[in-house]
Design a protein around this nucleic acid. Sequence first.
DNA 1: TTGACATATTCCTATATGGGAATATATTAA
DNA 2: TTAATATATTCCCATATAGGAATATGTCAA
Lengths: 111, 111
Amino acid sequence: MARAATTSDAFNAVAEPRRRDILNYLAMQERSVSEIVDAMEMEQPSVSKHLKVLQGVGLVEVRREGRQMLYKVNAIAIRPLHEWASTFERLWKHQLLRIKERAEANAAPKQ
Amino acid sequence: MARAATTSDAFNAVAEPRRRDILNYLAMQERSVSEIVDAMEMEQPSVSKHLKVLQGVGLVEVRREGRQMLYKVNAIAIRPLHEWASTFERLWKHQLLRIKERAEANAAPKQ
DNA sequence: TTGACATATTCCTATATGGGAATATATTAA
DNA sequence: TTAATATATTCCCATATAGGAATATGTCAA
């Protein structure tokens, strides 16, 4: 079996850094494909393909306006990712606390 | 060019659902490979391979104890994912608020 | 040393890319 | 209609899987 399709879920879709770049860019506001092409400095076909993947998992929405297609983020689709990561938040906070404690113990060693 | 390696970063590593399962399981406590095999109901070689990927991006740490290899989560490595997703939190909260407002407007339509 | 147990690695294969190049489609303007 | 603009799709290819099967490696017990 190969890797799961990039369109299988948000996790697979955002594994590609260029797609995260596009989402970051769209977070500011709705944009046309050519605006994305210019901003990302990618080939137009690449952008269209990435947008299709993002649309496939519901991470972006589109509407036509004349000849242009305007894409915007559907932020709710990013939530599952955030929530999954959140389940580890308690663990890393604990980890950071211990790191901090060690640093302080080293800064002021027992006499 | 093919997709980026699963070992290129945490985003690619956790795109695979079985690896998220393993991380979820390890979140509770350190576990040996065979404990993971039993809990996940996966073949041992598969588990070892997934663990290698997770280790490659620093998502898990290992130590040997006799014949066993004990794996645990390195939660800090999940933080970049959480922080990236967090940048969209404002957007989806806004989205949810509008959804709620619409629902309320429908429930109590103007007379 | 030998055997048993725990884990890792290798080999194989079907599948899914992501980018580049070329082309198709859709929409508006002349 | 024809041309121009905006975007999407197709084709090709090198690459990276993930799982199954078989095997190798490492460690402990007798």
